[in-house]
Design a protein around this nucleic acid. Structure first.
Lengths: 217, 217
DNA sequence: AGATTGCATATTGTATACAAAATCCAATGT
DNA sequence: ACATTGGATTTTGTATACAATATGCAATCT
């Protein structure tokens, strides 16, 4: 572990454990051994315990006092449902964007989209973020907060491992851009919901490929 | 503090601090003094830090590494927005309920509603929970998980301090019961959204009355 | 044989100790 | 008077220590 001497070890540990879970190294239902992780990362249990609390809140771990933390048994249905919820919120925001974004911002959105079309898979991730970021910028604070959480608890940028994801994404984004350009809130919502639904399927497939559901005890 | 000798101190501390924040004793923007709380509750900082992580994830605290935890500056708009999101999800679930609840369950829902109408404010809280619980029972797992989180981060049962809340709630519930009885998903969604919107206004008012927004900082 | 009890061990939860960074405050200089 | 710097103080973050509970296993009983 890259001991950076700056507070925030817990955050790195969260990322580490999350990776282990989503990558299938820690199987659903299995127990988290604090001591083992402490040994692996060469840190004490203190920051580890704080990391476990975060992952518990995110729903990736089930924590029972005095018993320990266990990897949550996330099902495919959970993932699909998760992205459905994500889509519901993001759809509402897209509808707001269709009404609230001014000419300047709509132009920038189109510019980002054009860049996205021509980008490599590598840069695509960054532009994808910018795209959604701009749309979400007109959402109220709490909504943005919730979106951030939804995109963290089953990490976004995950389905980006799926071959051909960008091709599908471009098509979806086109619909969204068109709807927002036309100031059509309802079309924007539907397009965004569709987009997130497909992202959910892609994410579930990506997890499957990473071995997440291999012999879940 | 009631030292119950069973693991889970952190959970009690979460409740304690949350109460202090929502009750206005800890002002928005003010810094959380870990040592002070340790002194107040006669516990060490270990469980306190874990509690702070939870409250940070809930959005009640802003935590900056090496700087400390600060009470989030929740605005009235945040509260309204929060309940709007709550309504969006709960509305979707209500629509599902209108399609999925069988005759038996619809009958029980009406029974709960009748009891609710005649209940005192005290028992009303419990019946209110049962009412929403039954409706939410047909939602997929992840959705129920999100609803639980939304209702915890700005505690539900909060607006129940508002005088006359039950009267309004009864009227709203009536609309919901009717829509579900008529198997009308769209009406159910609208009724639930309205209900949660009103709950949001009530919650904001309750917070105001508790002094939550008195001299912020 | 299978279930049950009791003890040894392992693991959790909490407290304490210590190092590093941030904050505070006074002294200094402009 | 105001900004700046330097060190003392406070507070955080991490490590370690210890107490209490849960777990596992062997001996015992039915």
């Amino acid at each position: 572990m890259s001991r950076i001497t700056r507070g925030g070890l817990a955050e790195e540990i969260v990322a580490h454990i999350r990776g282990q879970i989503l990558g299938g190294e820690l199987k659903p239902g299995s127990k988290i051994d604090q001591e083992q992780i402490a040994l692996d990362l060469d840190v004490s249990r203190s920051p580890i315990r704080e990391a476990l609390v975060v992952l518990g809140q995110e729903g990736l771990l089930d924590i029972t006092p005095r018993r320990g933390a266990f990897v949550a048994r996330i099902t495919r249905e959970d993932v699909i449902d998760h992205y459905e919820l994500f889509g519901l919120i993001a759809g509402r925001v897209a509808a707001m964007a269709a009404e609230l974004l001014d000419a300047e911002q709509r132009k920038e959105l189109r510019a980002i989209h054009v860049q996205f079309q021509e980008a490599t898979d590598e840069e695509g991730s960054k532009l994808n973020n910018e795209f959604h970021q701009l749309i979400n910028s007109c959402a109220p604070r709490r909504t943005r907060w919730l979106l951030r959480h939804l995109e963290r608890s089953i990490p976004a940028g995950f389905f980006e491992r799926t071959p051909g994801w960008k091709h599908e994404a471009v098509a979806d984004h086109q619909q969204i851009v068109d709807a927002i350009s036309a100031k059509d809130p309802d079309a924007a919502r539907r397009a965004m919901e569709t987009h997130l639904h497909e992202a959910g399927v892609a994410a579930a497939n990506a997890l499957e490929q990473l071995g997440f559901w291999k012999d879940s005890e």
